[in-house]
Write a protein that binds this DNA or RNA. Sequence first.
DNA 1: AGCGCAGTCAACACGGCTGTTGATTAACTG
DNA 2: CAGTTAATCAACAGCCGTGTTGACTGCGCT
Lengths: 229, 229
Amino acid sequence: MYSSRNHRKKRMRTKAAETSKISERRLAARKTAAVEYEKRRARVLKAAAEVFKELGYSTATVDDVAKRAKIDRASIYYYFKGKKDLLREMVGGATAENVDMAEDIASSDRSPREKLRKLMVDLLVSYERHYPYLYVYVQEDMSRLLQDKSPWSKRMVALNHRFDVAVVQIIQEGLKSKAFRSTGDAKLIAAGVVGMCNWSHRWFEPSGKRRAAEIAETFADMVLDGLCS
Amino acid sequence: MYSSRNHRKKRMRTKAAETSKISERRLAARKTAAVEYEKRRARVLKAAAEVFKELGYSTATVDDVAKRAKIDRASIYYYFKGKKDLLREMVGGATAENVDMAEDIASSDRSPREKLRKLMVDLLVSYERHYPYLYVYVQEDMSRLLQDKSPWSKRMVALNHRFDVAVVQIIQEGLKSKAFRSTGDAKLIAAGVVGMCNWSHRWFEPSGKRRAAEIAETFADMVLDGLCS
DNA sequence: AGCGCAGTCAACACGGCTGTTGATTAACTG
DNA sequence: CAGTTAATCAACAGCCGTGTTGACTGCGCT
């Protein structure tokens, strides 16, 4: 269906056999062309992330993205399959990273206290580093994506679940070892901690005076030691 | 424009002069009719709230609402001006209540500690009581409604701001009196506390085993005394 | 000069959603 | 029965957003 548009794949197929000067120059030309291609593609993706974050995925139109990227709307369909594809690409990579991060922390040999602190810091720093890509994902409700039975949606839901499990695990360990004390169960506490971090999508700006790491430390202090310590 | 549809207003105009038996009967008939009208209207509104919460305001269609309410789509336009009107009605009243609540707490003579706890409990209980009406509001980002310059939007943004101010005030009082201790400033802490509560729109269900009040108490304990107390 | 190809852009088809209207039904009233 | 009125419903108009197509441009290569 989109075979005529897969320039990227075509370009990536390097021919190792040809080593003459001419073909080297060709290869170089193709490589720089490919780099340009990727640059423009990334620019469009960045524009899309901004627009999606500001307007919300369903409200934003492909034309909004085009205007932001200063490109013709139809050209976007040259770089991406469509609106959904835009969302998937911006969200996919970074999310998987975050899940790995959470699981690594959970299975590390730190104390529960330090695990939870590190989780919060790393999470917010990740939101900052990938701004605004990851916030688009945070903003869009997973339970809504569940309607869509596509493999991508399933994968995203699975990743989401693994993340939650890792957080709950950290809390549970803390409760069991009496490092943490609470009237609620681990899931509830996890919901509170994660919610505190995720709600930052409504107010955090990377250009603001506070770095994500500072914010996360303040939150961690609050959760771990309490305001009335 | 909609004059031919304002049955409700027409009905509400009671004629105190007529007191004969016949007119009394008429009045009674109209009253029960009006009650029925309000009931059906409320049913539609409830359906709309459910659909908006599940699908998101912009994704949901008026037809989705109609199907949920088991009514013809066009009939919805008999009861409401349109999709926006649906949103406004479900969100308007309860929000104002919440702001009053927050301001009352802030200006009461409790300790900062008890103010913050009560705020969290009352907020979550309100979300539970008005479920799912208020979560629709929490879900929809205010900064997006800002685009729309309607008086309603302005009022909502103003209410939102008053709420935030009240919360910050409580925290500030706590910090000043040394009842609270934190590395961050009042706004940041407020963002954390409010975020923790608001994120509940993603997972809280009134039919679940935990009441909102319990949840809020757990959260308050965590924030005030810390997990490592 | 002539070929090929990445990339752009105007124009179109299509579908879905909103809001309206006018006819129609059902229930009540005298 | 005839008149009135709330409420429903089928059908329609218009708009907006998506995705596609085919022609066009500009550039590098031979």
